[in-house]
Write a protein that binds this DNA or RNA. Sequence first.
DNA 1: CGCCTGGTCAGTTTGCGCCT
DNA 2: AGGCGCAAACTGACCAGGCG
Length: 304
Amino acid sequence: MINFQGLDLNLLMTLDVLLKERNVTRAAQRLHLSQPSVSVQLKKLREMFGDPLLLPGPRGMTPTALAESLQAPLADALTALEQAVQPAREFDPTTAKGTWRLAAADYGEATILRRALPSILRQAPQCRIAVSQVKPRTLAASMESGELELAFHTADAAPPGLKSSALFTEHYVLAGRKDHPQLQQPLDMDRFCHLEHVMVSPNGGGFSGGTDQVLAMLGHKRKVVLSVPHFNFLCQLLESSDLVAMVPSRLIPGTGLKTHPVPFQAPSFQMVMLWHEKHHNDAAHRWLRQSIRDSVKAQGAPSS
DNA sequence: CGCCTGGTCAGTTTGCGCCT
DNA sequence: AGGCGCAAACTGACCAGGCG
């Protein structure tokens, strides 16, 4: 049982720094204290928790199991406390400096970032933005470590534990080149399924997606002959061949592609913006998120 | 053996609350 | 305002253990 008698926030901050540095001298330097002072504080913490917390090791201090288990929740609590007591600072994009790190797939780049980023850079001329390919498996860890600040993903496959904001709902449409010989008249289910389909499989190699699930429920199966990793490549393929694909509607404008009605309810998905809780109240981050929301809202839904 | 590190001790300084 | 007592934190000296 922890003895909270004499609990001092400074002691907890010392513990937080000790667990990060794992060295009393370096922790003392970071805390602007002398080494003996931190040593005394560590002694008090040990009495308070009834645990050695950090044991002298070959190189610095080694945390006990209890100390290890305290590290993350303690850091989170202190960050939350800091944000709670820190007066909210306004973010001025005209004078702000810094680098934002974003992650998106090519769909997110084309539908969200292509319009939003130039406007953001105009408003915040001294800021930089780095966009990388979104990796769902490591997304949460990258955000936890601060490697990434904002990501764009489909809501259904978004990693748990992150803050999110819905941007828009997207639906798939059948697309092919304008003078495609088999798309000059309405399609029934059989003709749809016998077309040669391309699909995007971000992880590579997949031949079944949301459309195939809908078809399977209706007792049909389409002919997927090609799987590619990016929508950009997919659109280029459709323009120069007789291949067809179910493409998110927002990608069609500006291409040489034509959309066609399909004889079933085409699947849809929701795009969300994701970020870590530690950035939730950050004024700069809030401004960035709002700028992206405003940009998406200004674009509206595609006409077709 | 020298260096680095954590820990302890004694004496001093500083900050604060209380009292006159 | 000044004196007093207390607690906290400081400096400096020193010790012990691990490592190259």
